[in-house]
Design a binder for these strands. Structure first.
Lengths: 186, 186
DNA sequence: TATTGTTATACTCTATAACTATA
DNA sequence: TATAGTTATAGAGTATAACAATA
């Protein structure tokens, strides 16, 4: 990515203050949840909602969403990571990876450097300040996660294993040939 | 909600075709996930992402997101449910419950009727067509969920229980007084 | 004065499509 | 021709704030 001639165009995604996107999904007394109470999928959604809110609380000092945190870890552990690969790892479109990277660089967490072997691509790296900040943030996230595990008692490790397997099972169902939603076949 | 004098203003949220909001988050070979692989929270996110995509596939014929499906079940099981209560059950702001209800009514799933005991409020009800459609949709969702459980084998029921508990644990952490993020204290 | 729902508006996240530069 | 990234734009979801009607 050596000599592009675009206008300077810094994007508009610079505003900080990532708001909590969802409130806490508390069971409302007197409301009948019907089917939902028995569904694995709904239990998962409730758990994820609660975790999201709690992650936000535990990391409020950094103002980084779970997704952005994941991106930081990936860049830290894979210096020179391409934007496109980052997006792929996170299930994002190219343009989404761009916005994400814009935010990380605008906030001083990361920077784009030339990729040595491909002039079209960037290699992503944490800044020195980003590395320092991430060390503390990772510690906070790890502590947060341990607290949840502790709250689960002996069920904890089994839950983690079952979740990993569930992701695998659901992915397998989605990508089984006869289940694949047919793309437009022109 | 008897005689309001607002302009007719049907909202602009009528367009159907709810797109899949996220792609599949597949582990990318050669990328080091560091901390993330060990986190309960990240496992949960991966599982939820995979389930979301699979739910979409399994219910493509209805074009209803998981959230809208949940709203339909809640209305079906609680005829006359208030918009505000619906929002509360789903962790939404009043205005979000409004948009959601607008969509459900515009698509013919539900309708607003006067609440008998409070002229400010609506009571939400499924339409006759909505009830018929929901019966089939619920069957499809239940089958989808059973397929996932089957894929988990003997771990399945324990996973469900652990998820319910996890939601509870995370909620408890977020709402413990000393953890509560302090609101602006002017 | 508080609550229910509405309106107007803004911000975030994500996607599509057309584009530049490079492979 | 295909790929990496960018730009412009649009759609969905959610939030805040001010408002009307009713409690």
């Amino acid at each position: 990515m050596r000599n592009k001639t675009y206008p300077d165009g810094m994007s508009k995604t610079d505003s900080a203050a990532a708001l909590a996107p969802e409130g806490l999904m508390l069971p409302v007394p007197g409301v009948d949840y019907g089917l939902l109470d028995g569904l694995l999928g709904y239990a998962l959604r409730r758990a994820q909602n609660a975790l999201y809110v709690d992650f936000h609380r535990a990391t409020a000092a950094w103002d980084v969403s779970p997704q952005r945190f994941a991106a930081l870890v990936l860049i830290a552990r894979n210096p020179g990571l391409r934007q496109g690969l980052l997006g792929q790892a996170m299930g994002l479109h190219r343009s989404g990876a761009l916005r994400l990277t814009d935010w990380l660089t605008a906030q001083g967490w990361a920077e784009r450097r030339d990729a040595p072997d491909d002039a079209r691509a960037w290699g992503l790296h944490l800044t020195a300040a980003g590395k320092r900040r991430l060390a503390k943030l990772e510690a906070a996230v790890a502590a947060h996660d341990r607290a949840l595990l502790a709250g689960l008692g002996e069920q904890g490790p089994a839950l983690k294993a079952a979740l990993d397997r569930l992701a695998w099972v659901a992915t397998a169902q989605s990508t089984t040939p006869q289940n694949k939603p047919r793309r437009q076949t022109p």
